[in-house]
């Protein structure tokens, strides 16, 4: 557990340090269920003793072994599309890829200045990242709220790369001579970090140092970020996140990145953000709540509170006889069905 604060209120986040999965987890239908989402399948078996590559082979190349593979990489989408046994199911998921700015005063990179943060947002080509790093399976973001969620601001457009505007803003602030922009990312995001680095070099003439965080250092890095006692060694951290619903992204996303109790806040608290959020947290009127959620997303956009990138799709490889309906905020199977041609029904 990473304890962020004890007084006046206790604030903490639990850090998952490992998974202890059994080889199989078997779910059986509750036939007496009565909540309007009665299971259509008799049994769901989660298979945990395959590698992702083995699982993808099993769903794409044959039947009877694996019926759904989640978290298909965009790089593997074509293989699924070309499969005779599987189809590709995609959905605009409630997932966000964002760069957290280190805005602590002791950081000598001038990210405390909104102009420098905005310069980086103009410098980076999020549309190219979507097309090249995600093969088009993502949506560029203006700020943190995807357009399909409550609280999205209709007139906010994802910034289109504008190197001249970026340079003008950055020059007005000034970047320390010879100081590299330190971009941290876990190994899976290192390629995107390099795309950002190239854009920043091209637009602003600022070189970057990519800090690829090894898997065995991720827990320590997460703890330091959450507890906020140690200043991070990076300027920008590529941080994938998600939302539990589409109703109020400010509660689970914006607050986590910028709130006084946010796990990913990497700088001093922002009184204006906290003021708006506090009002939202106490508002039970739906219309007022939506207006405040929009105000929050507009505020973080105008303040360039983060390096806003994109909302990656969720990709699934699904056996051709399985009717799976994807969810934006979760992975649920209650309404998944199989046809009579499915391998599990051949004894009927």
């Amino acid at each position: 557990m990473a304890i962020q604060r004890v007084r006046p209120e206790f604030v903490a986040t639990n850090i998952i340090t490992g998974e202890d999965r059994t080889p199989r987890v078997v779910l059986e239908a509750n036939r007496d269920h009565n909540s309007g989402r009665t299971a259509r399948l008799e049994q769901v078996v989660f298979v945990n003793d395959l590698s992702p590559a083995e699982a993808l082979d099993a769903v794409c190349d044959r039947e009877g072994e694996i019926d759904i593979v989640t978290e298909v990489s965009p790089a593997d989408a074509r293989r699924v599309l070309d499969s005779q046994f599987a189809r590709l199911v995609t959905i605009d998921a409630n997932r966000m890829l964002t760069g957290v700015f280190n805005t602590y005063e002791v950081n000598d990179a001038p990210l405390q200045d909104v102009r420098m943060r905005e310069a980086l947002n103009w410098a980076v080509d999020r549309h190219r990242i979507v097309q090249e790093a995600f093969a088009g399976y993502a949506t560029p973001l203006a700020a943190l709220t995807p357009t399909w969620c409550n609280g999205a601001v209709a007139e906010l457009e994802p910034r289109r790369r504008d190197p001249a505007r970026a340079k003008e803003l950055a020059d007005a602030v000034g970047w320390p001579e010879g100081r590299a922009l330190r971009i941290a990312a876990d190994a899976s995001l290192e390629g995107i970090a390099r795309m950002i680095s190239a854009d920043v070099q091209d637009a602003l003439g600022i070189a970057s140092e990519i800090i690829a965080v090894p898997a065995d250092e991720m827990v320590a890095g997460a703890r330091a970020l959450i507890e906020k006692k140690l200043v991070p060694p990076w300027d920008v951290l590529l941080n994938p996140w998600f939302d539990l619903s589409s109703d109020n992204p400010a509660a689970f996303v914006h607050r986590e990145f910028f709130g006084h109790d946010g796990a990913f806040r990497a700088g001093p608290p922002d009184p204006e953000f906290d003021r708006i959020f506090a009002e939202l947290a106490r508002t039970i009127d739906v219309d007022r709540s939506r207006a405040l959620a929009e105000q929050i997303d507009r505020y973080v956009y105008e303040q360039s509170k983060a390096l806003f990138l994109c909302a990656p799709n969720a990709l699934y490889a699904v056996n051709r006889h399985v009717d799976f309906k994807a969810y934006r905020a979760t992975f649920e199977l209650a309404d998944t069905e199989v046809s009579a041609e499915h391998w599990s029904r051949q004894d009927e």
């Binding site: 078996v45 694996i66 593979v69």
Partner: peptide, 29 residues
Amino acid sequence: LQRDREADPVGTINVFDPHPLNWLFITWN
């Protein structure tokens, strides 16, 4: 499938889910 919806749950599927939130998805299922 439309006709089957009137009947009991049928069939089994095998799922590979490497997502780090699998524990939560199992709970929600």
